[in-house]
């Protein structure tokens, strides 16, 4: 099997196999932080950054664990690395941009339990990507996540003004919108293959 070309990985991870709408990874922030377009795009940027660092770190861990011959430690090592990366990013943002730090609030530390990040680490391992492909994959996934979040936020900003029965407001309406977005993204199927 010839390795996938880089552009195909980028296209696949961002659109065809969108993390949120096709693989159900990162649903919690997708429903939680998609009220406003501004917050959504900043959240997307933070997640993309953590994804890039995680991709780099997990690639190293994989090499190490394969040499030592302890694949059963993979999950524990991944989660420890992700938790410390998020901590690092948090301290960095707090130091350089207190305003952004305030805007992201509780959702910054919660990136640790965002399954999109751990999912990325695991998928990258399963697919056996080399370093370059892993970075491209992380970039594409981050872009796809941001795109889904921003699209959702745009729809929800409009929904705020819509006249809906009380019963439907909230989670039920958001999920229905997510379903329709997911159908729209099905149109990308076959694009990158």
């Amino acid at each position: 099997m010839t390795p996938e070309p880089h552009w195909q990985i980028l296209l696949n991870s961002a659109l065809v196999n969108n993390f949120v709408l096709a693989w159900f990874l990162g649903i919690c922030p997708f429903l939680g932080v998609s009220n406003k377009v501004g917050t959504a795009s900043r959240m997307g940027a933070a997640v993309t950054f953590v994804m890039l660092v995680t991709a780099l770190a997990t690639w190293g861990i994989n090499m190490l664990l394969d040499t030592v011959g302890a694949p059963y430690l993979r999950l524990i090592a991944f989660i420890a690395v992700i938790a410390s990366t998020v901590q690092l990013v948090e301290m960095f943002i707090k130091k350089t941009s207190p305003a952004l730090f305030k805007a992201l609030g509780i959702f910054l530390p919660l990136i640790t339990t965002n399954c999109a990040i751990l999912g990325l680490a695991l998928l990258q391992t399963n697919k056996g990507y080399d370093l370059g492909r892993a970075i491209i994959f992380a970039l594409g996934s981050g872009l796809g996540f941001t795109l889904a979040l921003v699209l959702m936020a745009g729809v929800r900003e409009r929904l705020e003004l819509a006249d809906m029965p009380d019963l439907v407001k909230g989670t039920a309406a958001s999920l229905a919108v997510a379903g329709i977005l997911s159908v729209a993204f099905m149109g990308f199927a076959g694009l990158g293959s």
């Binding site: 709408l21 096709a22 693989w23 159900f24 989670t171 039920a172 309406a173 999920l175 229905a176 997510a178 379903g179 329709i180 997911s182 159908v183 099905m186």
Partner: peptide
């Protein structure tokens, strides 16, 4: 995937 969103929405 879309069916998952729709079903959960209906159950909600």
């Amino acid at each position: 995937p879309a069916g998952g969103f729709f079903t959960l929405s209906a159950w909600m």
